[in-house]
Design a protein around this nucleic acid. Structure first.
Length: 464
RNA sequence: GCCCCGCUAGCUCAGUGGAUAGAGCAUCUGUCUUCUAAACAGAGGGUCGGGGGUUCGAAUCCCUCGCGGGGCACCA
């Protein structure tokens, strides 16, 4: 029903621990989203970028776009070097350096490295750190993979930053910017600046100590996607705390000679947990919980993947999420997740119940027989679906889908309930033609609910 | 100081210039002998943060002020 000319796309996203963003997509074929700096577990805000990016990908795929999901793994920046140095310190029974990583998992990583990397202790820090860093990062990436898999998210590519340097892409980007007059030396460092833009501050590309900044890697990553791989559009999903970086990315891509419009950066606001006595709308306790931070795994443990995805997708990216833990775990009519899923389960059930009568039913459904308001309302909702998909695709706003799902579920429940109130309004009635027509409505509604829930990454159970 | 996001019902939020501003939760009242009551029907609840402006028409666009959150590195 929704047929579109396939375009080349790509999605990439970048989520961030201390790292930028969270996800990106490129059209023609490549989104990148949720690329969190790996030296730590995903927390609840990363989940937002991950789910948002993933649903954008799902919608794009559904509308015929080729999509490549990428997770950009930082491996050569200051943060990850400190991470490697922290593992090195633990390996030698020492405290991590200033600004390093102190969690118990760092000690565990050191122990694992001790077993897996022979003679690693004999190497100097200079030699050992990169090895330990890559080893520990790979372990962290495995963890992140496992976590996002619980949400039904799968990346086509875990793109390692070091591959960029091995391929010489950042170097190539720098040379191109130099040739175009965007680079200058100052205080021993190499700076990027648009000569035509006085507003924008200059940005360090190579530090005075000779080490590149993440900006240099980004140049390479842009080249990788736009030039080497030819993506028509790149979508990146970032946490709003990185919004200040957007203008620089736009300048960079323009300076490299590409259309800045082809780099789409989607920003999302933060996530807070709400719990406590909120039922009557009184106490609201924010749970950033001093010191203790809530990981994405903990949230999934507590409310399940469906609820996490549904509640996250329910909000516009511009809105800070107040995640209502109590509501999300409620197995009742107040929980929108179950409300939608129940509509699907009911329809599945009624179709199954009708199957024994199938032999007596006409092959063709005559939908003209559907005349009651509750029947027409379902049909009306179904007619809206293509527009919802189109809007969600064009604006890259998956949050439109759960609202639609709710509206369709409401129509379905009302339709179904008419049969509860009066038996002649049931789907399966004595009149075979009428039964057939109503079954057709059920089939269409169930299919649409299933499709919409799929785009959200939420399951559509057949019975509840 | 500068930049970004938000401010809509008690709470959480939809609503990209068009009809009387919507939903969920919460509160109150009804409905199961059933193809699934995890559902349905109904009620109350609003200066769309304040003030200007543009427009035939503004929650929506512009200006301004206030409040809350997030940013302004040779970190990402």
């Amino acid at each position: 029903m929704l047929r579109r000319r396939p375009r080349r796309w790509a999605a990439t996203s970048t989520s961030a621990l201390p790292t930028r963003g969270s996800g990106a997509l490129s059209a023609g074929s490549t989104p990148e989203f949720a690329s969190i700096n790996p030296p730590g577990p995903l927390h609840i805000a990363h989940g937002r970028g991950t789910i948002l990016g993933d649903s954008i990908c799902r919608v794009l795929e559904f509308t015929g776009h080729a999509v490549q999901r990428e997770y950009y793994v930082n491996s050569d920046n200051t943060q990850t070097r400190k991470f490697g140095a922290s593992v090195y310190a633990r390996l030698h029974g020492e405290e991590p350096p200033e600004g390093g990583y102190t969690g118990d998992y760092v000690t565990e990583l050191a122990e694992m490295a001790h077993h897996d990397l022979p003679d690693i202790e004999k190497l100097s820090e200079e030699e050992a750190e990169p090895k330990l860093r890559m080893y520990a990062l790979a372990k962290m990436v495995e963890q992140i993979k496992a976590t996002v898999a619980r949400l039904g998210v799968r990346y086509d590519e875990w793109f390692w930053e070091n591959k960029l340097w091995e391929a010489g892409l950042p170097q190539k980007g720098i040379e191109r910017l130099r040739a175009a007059g965007y680079l200058k030396e100052k205080d021993g460092a190499l700076w990027f600046g648009d000569p035509a833009d006085q507003e924008e501050e200059d940005r360090v590309v190579i530090r005075s100590n000779g080490q590149p900044t993440y900006f240099a890697s980004d140049l390479g990553y842009l080249l990788s996607r736009f030039e080497q791989r030819g993506y028509q559009r790149v979508i990146e999903v970032w946490g709003a705390d990185h919004h200040g970086y957007v203008p620089r990315m736009k300048s960079a891509i323009a300076a490299l000679g590409f259309d800045p419009e082809k780099l789409v950066i989607i920003l999302h606001q933060m996530v807070n947990l709400k719990e406590g006595a909120t039922r009557s709308g009184q106490k609201v306790k924010m749970s950033k919980r001093a010191g203790r931070f809530v990981t994405l795994d903990e949230l999934i443990d507590r409310v399940g993947s469906d609820a996490v995805r549904y509640f996250y997708l329910l909000r516009s990216p511009d809105t800070t999420i107040e995640f209502d833990l109590e509501l999300a775990v409620t197995q009742g009519n107040e929980n929108p997740v179950y409300y939608a899923q129940y509509a699907h389960a009911r329809l599945t059930n009624v179709e199954a119940a009708a199957s024994e009568h199938h032999a007596q039913l006409p092959v063709q459904a005559d939908v003209q027989l559907l005349v009651h308001p509750w029947e027409l309302d379902v049909a009306r909702q179904l007619a809206f679906w293509p527009d919802v998909v189109e809007d969600a695709t064009a604006m890259l706003e998956p949050h439109r889908i759960p609202y639609y799902v709710h509206d369709l579920a409401t129509a379905v429940h009302r339709f179904y309930h008419a049969g509860n109130a009066q038996s002649e309004h049931r789907v399966v009635v004595d009149d075979p033609k009428l039964t057939r027509a109503r079954l057709e409505l059920c089939r269409a509604a169930r299919h649409t609910l299933k499709t919409a829930l799929d785009l959200m990454g939420v399951s559509a159970p057949e019975r509840m």
